[in-house]
């Protein structure tokens, strides 16, 4: 019984900006420590200790930035669309704010993924950019983020902006499966997925373990960036409420 009651209460509490502000304040230090630890351990392990690739030599090491950022850019879009849908359906203020905070973070991570891909492409494929399905669909994802940001800043009313961008994000969701399966549907230059949940990776464990650490590190970093932005957004939107005033005057 206790468990049954706990879930809805937790869900409703999440809708309260004040509760959300408090809980993110408590969680933030944990995620900062986790992000710093995993990113430092992952980077050192990846750059210094992981074995070099037998074909690509040391140039393959950019995979440790490229793969996590690509995965994260797509997850971030999913989060934005899901948060937007929650905001649209249950009219939850915090969900609107989460969706709004996702767009700039996602856009910067998508550009990181594209840039590292270009740097990796130069030594391996001989060119910075190829018009291949994976790269093009990732570029579209970046454009979608830009569209969401542009629409959000063009509409003055916060509520309308949140609703409109939620609709746009949901429409743009069709692109996510295209990115994901582009390497399977078309014969592309880009290699197939590095990680799948069901199979063992094709590379030795000395190579993929640091990658896994880096992926976790990127997610922790995303959580930190998200919470910082969200707390900022909460303070800004709730500036007229008594608890924010009390917080600011203390």
């Amino acid at each position: 019984m206790a468990d049954k009651k706990w879930l809805p209460r937790w869900f409703y509490q999440l809708a309260s900006p004040r509760w959300c502000y408090d809980i993110t304040g408590k969680l933030l230090p944990i995620f900062v420590i986790a992000a710093v630890l995993t990113l430092v351990v992952g980077t050192v392990w990846a750059l210094a200790f992981a074995p070099a690739d037998y074909q690509q030599g040391n140039s393959f090491r950019i995979i440790y930035i490229h793969v996590p950022s690509s995965i994260l850019a797509q997850s971030c879009y999913m989060l934005m669309a899901v948060a937007g849908a929650i905001g649209l359906i249950w009219k939850m203020k915090v969900a609107d704010m989460v969706a709004k905070c996702c767009a700039p973070i996602g856009a910067s991570i998508a550009i990181l993924s594209l840039a590292t891909g270009a740097i990796w492409g130069k030594p391996t494929w001989g060119s910075w950019w190829v018009w291949d399905a994976r790269l093009t669909s990732m570029l579209i994802l970046f454009f979608l983020y830009l569209g969401v940001i542009a629409l959000n800043s063009a509409i003055e009313s916060e509520r309308t902006a949140a609703q409109s961008t939620a609709v746009l994000a949901l429409v743009g969701l069709v692109n996510i499966p295209i990115i994901k399966y582009s390497v399977d549907w078309w014969n592309t230059l880009h290699q197939p997925a590095t990680f799948t949940l069901t199979e063992r990776p094709a590379m030795p464990s000395e190579m993929w373990l640091p990658l896994l650490v880096m992926v976790i590190g990127f997610y922790c970093f995303f959580a930190v960036a998200m919470m910082l932005r969200l707390r900022n957004e909460i303070i800004q939107r709730e500036r007229r409420s008594s608890w924010v005033r009390a917080l600011m005057t203390n």
């Binding site: 454009f143 979608l144 569209g147 629409l151 063009a154 309308t160 746009l168 429409v171 692109n175």
Partner: peptide, 25 residues
Amino acid sequence: IGAALTVGLRKGGVLISLLVLPLYI
């Protein structure tokens, strides 16, 4: 969809292209 999202805005023209072009690709 883009036209409906931007119909309330005064300067909808350029914004529509930003929203819709990625989906046209």
